[in-house]
Design a protein around this nucleic acid. Structure first.
Length: 357
DNA sequence: TCTGGGGTCCTAGGACCC
DNA sequence: TCTGGGGTCCTAGGACCC
């Protein structure tokens, strides 16, 4: 046996709920639901539910109100982003300290680890032990010969286990599953694939990449075909991530109806976005205003910004975009995003949901 | 059931230029 | 007067991820 490159995908188990239990041990074993400000009467969704709460059918993205109704005895907690980020930093530092590890962070609770080893399972176990010892958090590890296979493998290892997915067993394990199980295929894409007669991973893997071009375009068509095969890059990239932009959005507890309210809200969003942008000191090159009208239609308005910017410039242009909002329609959400210039050596996106991997 | 907030990337179509 | 083909830039919208 020789030392060859492997991709490990590390995913913390019920991360947010686990962090909450660490600082409040009496919550262990209880159904915990974390979301919004922890108030089920507000417009908010579930960030994470503990396994005990998931048993009642509660999951991420579910309206908090519904989740609370499903689990009357649940412990409802507000999102505490700082605490999760601090825990996450410790986990990532532990991964980086492993011998030979190249670490690419994907989010608070997951990362790819690239490593040359003869025995990836043993390495994974060692990694789990190190994370547990330093943070008291459990994680699952997917082992793969590509990023996509490693990522998909993790689910089979949960909780706290290890699972290997390579070209050898990919179709045996994944072939019969619906395409929606694939990383990067959601409800909409799986429905469009089904229209083409492609319902399973097997069928997607067998599809001619070019045959998907008319429906999905020159880039995404072939990309979906390769997803079906589990193919793609095997390179874990630890280039530091650089944000392309910063945004803020607010869902109003009661819809806005007055233009003054809208302008005030846009000004506030602009101030918050500027705070993030100025902390990085890179020029703004574009602004996007997102408007969700009640009941639920979304529109965006965008503008490129020539040359550079200053505070007043961004605020004025944000208010300018707000002029596109349809008068008389109740507004339930406003979002403002500022796009910045990028350094040449910046890594490509931190989520591989779109082409390029 | 009624849908958060922070991100990334892709595509279509119009405007404009040569 | 009716009209090509290619390229680039921009806006709007969509899809997905954690």
């Amino acid at each position: 046996m020789s030392s060859i490159p492997w991709v490990l995908h590390v995913d913390l188990d019920q991360f947010i709920a686990a962090v909450e239990v660490l600082r409040r041990p009496e919550l262990a074993g209880k159904p915990i639901i974390v979301g919004g400000r922890g108030d089920p009467t507000e417009r908010a969704v579930v960030s994470t539910a503990s396994y005990e709460a998931r048993a009642f059918g509660v999951g991420s993205g579910m309206p908090l109100r519904i989740a609370a109704r499903k689990v009357p005895d649940a412990v409802l907690l507000p999102v505490d982003a700082e605490a999760y980020l601090a825990a996450s930093d410790e986990v990532m530092a532990t991964l980086r300290a492993q011998p030979g590890a190249v670490v690419q962070v994907l989010g608070w609770d997951e990362a790819f680890v690239g490593v040359n080893t003869e025995d990836p399972e043993a390495y994974a176990r060692q990694l789990q032990a190190a994370v547990l010892e330093r943070t008291q958090l459990h994680c699952s590890v997917g082992v793969g010969d590509t990023l996509v296979r490693a990522k998909n493998a993790t689910d089979f290892g949960k909780p706290a286990g290890v699972f290997r997915l390579t070209a050898e067993n990919w179709l045996t394990v994944m072939g019969a599953k619906p395409t929606k199980e694939l990383w990067g295929v959601g409800n909409k894409i799986s429905a469009r694939l089904a229209k083409l007669g492609i319902k399973t991973v097997d069928e997607l893997a067998a599809a001619d990449p070019q045959s998907l071009v008319p429906e999905f375009g020159p880039k995404m068509g072939p990309w979906y075909a390769s997803l079906g095969r589990g193919d793609g890059s095997s390179t874990v990239d630890d280039t530091p991530w650089v944000a392309r932009g910063h945004s803020r959005e607010t869902t109003f507890q009661t819809n806005l109806t007055e233009p003054d309210q809208v302008n005030d809200a846009v000004s506030q969003l602009a101030a918050e976005v500027l705070k993030d942008v100025e902390a990085e000191g890179r020029p703004v090159v574009g602004l996007t205003l997102k408007v969700r009208y009640a009941p639920f239609t979304t529109k965006t308005h965008a503008r490129k910004i020539p040359e550079t910017f200053d505070r007043g410039d961004v605020l004025a242009r944000a208010l300018d975009l707000a002029g596109n909002i349809e008068p008389g329609r109740p507004v339930r959400l406003l979002g403002l995003r500022a796009e910045m210039t990028m350094p040449d050596d910046a890594r490509q996106g931190h989520t591989p949901t779109r082409g390029g991997w």
